[in-house]
Simulated assay, not measured.
Amino acid sequence: MNNRQLLLLTYLLTAAMIVVALTAIIVNCARSRQAANVLPQAKDNPVIQAAAKISRYQNPGALISIYELKELVGDPNVVLINTLGSSYEVFAATYQVGHIPGAAYILNCEYDYPNYYGRIGTPAVIQEVLRRKGVDNQKRIIIYGNEGAGRFYWMMKMFGSANQIQVLDGDIETWRAAGFPVDTAAPPSQPTLFTFDLSRANMEYIAGLDQVIDAVVNYTPAITILDIRPHEYYLAAHIPQSINIAMEEVFNKDRTFKSASELQAIFAAKGVTADKTIYIYGQDGFHSPLIWFVLHELLGYSNVKIYDGGIIEWREHPLIIECGEQKQIIKPNS
């Protein structure tokens, strides 16, 4: 190759490199403009925001946004259940005034243990209730009603249901605020066959009185006893060694759950961390499973138990009660 040919080749290679560089600059500019257009849209789009928040939980499949639910209303493979009715009075003031279209209802008292208010019923009793509501072993179950939804979810998982089960992120007021329609009539339902697979049951999700007594008597830093009642209830009387994080702290103002990072901070600040055995209690067994749902499903804590008897059962026995602020000193993780 002579000098003239070598020079020509050098010019061509230089020109090619310039073309490649210019192409890269143009592509990057186009991407930047596209990102600049997309980011404001994502920031202002509640559908995208809701999906992004849910995706950051440890088990995002346990939760569903109002926007995703809206697309499933009327789906024959989905059964939607309203669990707001802790009593017939609450039922009359909520469900009959307006509920998400197609939602059946289950009252708390329908699956309580007979003669023990606020205690979970037996699998046989609960199966009959679910059959009457149109639940079978194949349908996807979506539940709403905040604390009632948490209890229903915990119950289904504990007794071995293999159904896909999701809790709505929000409640009926969240649904209304988005401008979505409500209904006042109960949907028709056909009796179905539903059976718990008790071979899948996990009774580690519940703790009895003896277990909680043992946790108090043989307390170690590896144990957390968590009272989820309002703080004034805690001050009046609580189980020894327990700390207090009120149930309401896990919600935003619109009754959606706080983000994963916010929830983690709330519990870590009181020493409630994933490496501990956590016993949760409330006044009875109705509200506490919601916090089980937050810790076990949203944050991924593995060893979380519900003391279903709550402070009501504890006070029925000659057991020590503490009053005032917590006696133990909790050092949050740094």
Results as ranks from 00 to 15, higher is better:
residue 258 K to S: 06
residue 95 Y to H: 09
residue 202 N to K: 02
residue 125 V to D: 12
residue 19 V to E: 08
residue 210 D to E: 14
residue 16 A to W: 10
residue 232 E to V: 13
residue 85 G to I: 04
residue 194 F to D: 00
residue 71 E to N: 11
residue 285 G to M: 05
residue 105 Y to C: 12
residue 320 I to M: 09
residue 232 E to S: 13
residue 276 K to N: 03
residue 246 A to Y: 06
residue 62 A to R: 01
residue 308 D to T: 07
residue 175 W to Y: 07
residue 89 E to R: 10
residue 212 V to W: 05
residue 333 N to D: 15
residue 137 N to Y: 02
residue 141 I to W: 01
residue 19 V to I: 15
residue 190 Q to S: 11
residue 293 F to G: 01
residue 86 S to W: 04
residue 242 S to T: 09
residue 65 S to D: 05
residue 250 V to A: 11
residue 253 K to C: 08
residue 159 F to C: 01
residue 255 R to Q: 14
residue 118 G to V: 03
residue 143 I to F: 03
residue 181 P to C: 12
residue 195 T to N: 10
residue 175 W to G: 03
residue 140 R to V: 06
residue 36 A to H: 12
residue 302 S to W: 00
residue 192 T to N: 11
residue 268 A to H: 14
residue 317 H to N: 15
residue 262 E to Q: 15
residue 105 Y to R: 07
residue 305 K to I: 04
residue 20 V to Y: 13
residue 37 N to M: 09
residue 291 I to M: 04
residue 58 Q to V: 04
residue 274 A to W: 01
residue 107 L to Q: 07
residue 45 N to A: 06
residue 74 G to V: 11
residue 324 G to Y: 05
residue 221 P to I: 08
residue 118 G to T: 02
residue 152 F to C: 01
residue 329 I to A: 10
residue 319 L to P: 04
residue 55 S to T: 04
residue 80 L to F: 08
residue 120 I to T: 10
residue 256 T to V: 03
residue 63 L to D: 00
residue 320 I to H: 13
residue 170 G to I: 08
residue 296 H to V: 00
residue 229 R to C: 15
residue 48 I to A: 04
residue 230 P to T: 05
residue 194 F to T: 01
residue 175 W to F: 11
residue 209 L to H: 07
residue 148 G to I: 02
